[in-house]
């Protein structure tokens, strides 16, 4: 399934005026492509994914899914925190999509088994989420996304809350699963290394209001492993993205932290000395 995003803008209407989160995003994600989105904080990445998932309406523009639908559902989503239902055991958290669709119980129980085995968590089927570590929870969330049987998987910084080792492990796990059954994936991340490691192509976004500044093709051979990270192609790609990104990150920082502005700082300190008049 291809995802075609055309002229997408989003304005949030708030009490303090309108916030322009997306300023005209154009993207085309190919069928069965692992597509990355990277950009400074607040540039609208989450907003973009939510719109693609149908959770929010765009102000302007469109998202189209082009191609033959071969699966049960259109999209699945994986969030930064696993967002599991704490009152359900693992094996009842995984088949959320099939259950809500109204599939027969024996069928989705088999599906659950299959995907729990895939993420190597079958032994924890009857555990409650609070008995799992962060990495395990995230694996359950991944299994849930897969069990939904979607054309497109949307991931919003899925590994951001994990420690460095677990993150490496899960990246490899995700790659392994994706190689087995390639789906269209849109991955939002702050981690350039992660993006290069996983993706076929990466969109670099500008600071808010977010637009796509550039789309980089990652020329690192698959299947990729930890060793790929020392591949000269890998390093080159990393540097290319950082060069594009550093200016935007810097800009976003200056906008988000006005105290870094020297004239404002001076004004504030003057106010401290002289009071309000």
């Amino acid at each position: 399934m291809r995802v075609v995003i055309h002229g997408l803008t989003k304005e949030y209407v708030t009490g303090k005026g309108n916030i322009r989160a997306l300023g005209g995003v154009n993207l085309e994600v190919r069928d069965r492509e692992f597509f990355g989105v990277i950009g400074p904080t607040g540039c609208g990445k989450t907003t973009l994914l939510n719109i693609v998932a149908g959770l929010q309406k765009p102000t302007n523009g469109s998202v189209e899914f082009v191609g033959e639908k071969r699966t049960q559902a259109m999209v699945s989503m994986v969030f930064q925190d696993a967002a599991l239902m704490p009152w359900r055991t693992v094996d009842r958290n995984v088949p959320l999509g099939p259950e809500f669709r109204g599939d027969a119980k024996p069928m989705y129980q088999r599906v659950t088994q299959f995907f729990l085995e895939m993420v190597r968590l079958l032994d924890f089927s009857s555990a409650h989420p609070n008995e799992l570590s962060g990495g395990m929870k995230q694996k359950v969330a991944l299994a849930r996304a897969l069990a939904n049987d979607p054309e497109v998987i949307l991931m919003d910084e899925p590994f951001a809350n994990l420690d460095a080792q677990t993150r490496l492990l899960l990246r490899e796990e995700l790659l392994r699963i994706w190689e087995r059954d390639k789906k269209t994936v849109i991955l939002v991340t702050h981690n350039i290394e992660e993006a290069v490691m996983l993706c076929d192509r990466i969109a670099v976004m500008s600071a808010a209001p977010g637009v796509v500044k550039n789309v980089i093709t990652v020329d690192v051979r698959r299947p990729r492993t930890l060793k790929s990270m020392s591949d000269p192609d890998f390093v080159r790609c990393l540097e290319k993205i950082w060069d594009l990104l550093r200016y935007e990150v810097d800009k976003a920082m200056r906008e988000n932290h006005p105290s870094a502005d020297p004239t404002l700082q001076e004004k504030q300190s003057r106010r401290n000395y002289f009071g309000w008049w």
Binding site: S76, M77, F79, D81
Partner: peptide
């Protein structure tokens, strides 16, 4: 948890299902 609700919406849950499976358990 609004994320749980988003999750359930993406999974195709209707308002009534969300109320029964998520809101109810959260409020219990």
């Amino acid at each position: 948890d609004s994320r749980l609700v988003s999750m359930a919406r993406v999974a195709g849950g209707r308002e009534w299902v969300i109320t029964r499976e998520i809101v109810w358990h959260t409020a219990l």
